[in-house]
Design a protein around this nucleic acid. Sequence first.
DNA 1: TGAAATGTTGGGGCG
DNA 2: ACGCCCCAACATTTC
Length: 473
Amino acid sequence: MAVSIWWVRRDLRLSDNPALHAACAHGAVVPVFILDPGADGSRYHRDAEARRAFLYGGLQALDADLRRRGSRLIVRRGRPLDALRRLAAETGASALFAEEDFSPYARRRDAAVQRALPLTLTGGVAVRRPAEVQKAGGGPYTVFTPFSRAWRALRPPTEGDLLPAPAHLPSPPTELDSLPIPAPPARPALFPPGEAEARRRLERFVSDRIFAYGEGRNQLDAEGTSALSPYFRFGMLSARTAVVAALKAGRSAGSAYARQSADAWLSELIWREFYLHILYHFPDVLKTAFQPGLRRIPWRDAPDELEAWKAGRTGYPVVDAAMRQLAETGWMHNRARMIVASFLVKDLLIDWRQGEQHFMDRLVDGDPAANNGGWQWTAGTGTDAAPYFRIFNPVLQSAKFDPQGRFIRRFVPELARVPDRFIHAPWTMSPLEQRACGCVIGQDYPAPIVDREVVKARTLAAYKQSKAGHDAP
DNA sequence: TGAAATGTTGGGGCG
DNA sequence: ACGCCCCAACATTTC
């Protein structure tokens, strides 16, 4: 019987997995995950602790799922090409299958393997492959709305397209060595890893919260989002499964608002596709601004302010709550990501790449494509980005999306007793009021590290300078 | 998937 | 009844 290798990288699931499906069609399957020290050295693949823990837990869950089907996960370490060569020789495998990934590192790695071994790359990470969503005259879209239109114009995936998990996986013929799956460091179980958990979360979301997503997704203090990003990051849930569920929810919606809400969530999934494709077509976005005119902004070198931002000590409650949420949980609400990103880039005038790197170091769902896309969007330097003069006011954002300050109080305990009317801007309390609620500014909680009115002018000037230098070099 | 300043409109109070 | 002012609500413009 023919043997093939299913090389697991970031699609840790058995359901709707094209690479696994292709491997099964070929014969007996050897599932392998390779611990790749080369990826650890890459700025964008170096795994944050939270991400590493989630990945290792996910490998354990995948192994358990495989064992229930008469198989197991083989774990190896080293350069992928070397490890795969050895494994192919040990098993007599005549084909390898893996999901295509889009980051420069992944593409280099896979191209090197393909030069030496019969590796077939399949879909799986995104619903559409880059070649499927192109402008009429050829070439990639760089603006979201037309991309989204073209994406939606393609035949929508249906229930019948979803590949079932194989009921039984024929074991490889020989006994194979495997490293133990590394133990995940103990962490709060905010995101229990595994395919079953991902599916449960999706089902819960599309039966209820998706219909209020229009507003719910923006509320910092409530669970209005799907909280599925880590599961998408490691493919414990296929994007295609999510799209099918979103479309189905849209059809069953009981009101126009519910239907629009379901569609808004689908739109978020399309944003994910958009940035995956952008990274594929424009790998340099990981190094430099997509917009040539915004490549020479005079960023400030302000290590103390950067550290204050990272630690959640900027004196702006919503910013600090969000940064502490990231530090404590490895995850941050999307609205909060925009607020803290705008603050770092537009208020502190610190290079967006510093923020991008910090997010990659901390986020359990950190993905080069989406993370870079988000940062360049906020910085106004990216494809279809926010205008450079759009600067979030953290006080207004906070009042709008955390009206009672519940999000703030959860993560910034020193503000717990500040009255509602001051919670978004506690420095406006009189000294008497500060003492009354046990929160003296500058002592119990920092004074704002910058005056927003002053820095806005500074940022607009810096962006204009970059543009001017580009227009007339 | 801004914010703030400025402009416009229209209802209601009031002399 | 009418004009005037105030101002909230909304629209437009600018960064």
